[in-house]
């Protein structure tokens, strides 16, 4: 599964010379946590759309120059506890470019979802702008990645959970799936995870049958250790 299949597009972004106050309003009214910052599109200040509820998304391919999170924006605000907490003049003067992160971790539309997940995890970040060439074409958040992984786990069609311990050697995934195929049972998903015992792996499958007993027996007769289901009797 590729990033382009799960990303959101078009992307709502702010231009680098937007004020911090404008960016705050976009984030608040559109309920957005991560705002990519794109190169100025040359619209004169004041002619800009000021109803942030209807701000149009960035044109596809606008050049990405940075990113601000809602936390960066709040950090730029005066504390509600300090005197002058309602003085927003400084926020209106400062531009987004002054507070944005310029060194942005991005993905390409053809990167895999696994790669996106690894980057989010490794950099402790919540979103990845999707960049093709220099241009911003989409955005992927941790929620998008989690949803994709849930889909990849395969619990979207009826099936039974099956776990088989196999030697960590070539050919066993093929042999196990061949035995399952002999029972005319379809497989909805396959995961391979490290086994608890040395030199083993565990195949975690979702198989489309309500009665996996015969299948389990075939696997056991072939010498495999079926971890689940356990304790089902075959009459």
């Amino acid at each position: 599964m590729l990033v382009e299949e799960i990303m959101s597009r078009p992307v709502l972004a702010v231009e680098s010379e937007y004020s911090v106050l404008e960016a705050l309003n976009v984030a608040r009214f559109r309920r957005i946590r991560h705002l990519p910052v794109v190169e100025s599109l040359g619209v004169a200040n004041g002619a800009r759309e000021h109803d942030f509820r209807t701000l149009p998304p960035a044109p596809e391919g606008a050049r990405l120059v940075g990113i601000v999170s809602d936390r960066d924006l709040r950090d730029a605000c005066p504390s509600v506890l300090s005197a002058g907490a309602t003085d927003f003049a400084a926020l209106a003067r400062a531009s987004v470019a002054d507070i944005m992160h310029g060194d942005v971790v991005t993905v390409h539309p053809h990167d895999s979802v696994e790669e996106a997940a690894r980057l989010l995890y490794q950099h402790h970040i919540g979103c990845l702008p999707v960049v093709s060439g220099q241009g911003l074409v989409g955005i992927v958040t941790e929620t998008d990645v989690l949803r994709a992984i849930v889909t990849l786990l395969g619990v979207t069609s009826p099936g039974s959970h099956l776990e088989v311990e196999v030697p960590d050697r070539p050919g066993h995934l093929g042999e196990v799936t061949r035995l399952i195929g002999q029972h005319q049972v379809n497989i909805a998903s396959v995961l391979i995870v490290p086994g608890r015992r040395e030199h083993t792996r565990v195949l975690v499958l979702r198989v489309q049958t309500i009665d996996p007993r015969r299948l389990v027996r075939s696997l056991e007769e072939a010498g495999y250790h079926v971890l689940w289901p356990s304790g089902l009797k075959l009459a």
Binding site: P158, G159, H161, P212
Partner: peptide, 9 residues
Amino acid sequence: SGRYLYPGT
């Protein structure tokens, strides 16, 4: 629970 039994939902 569907974690352990058909149909998984």
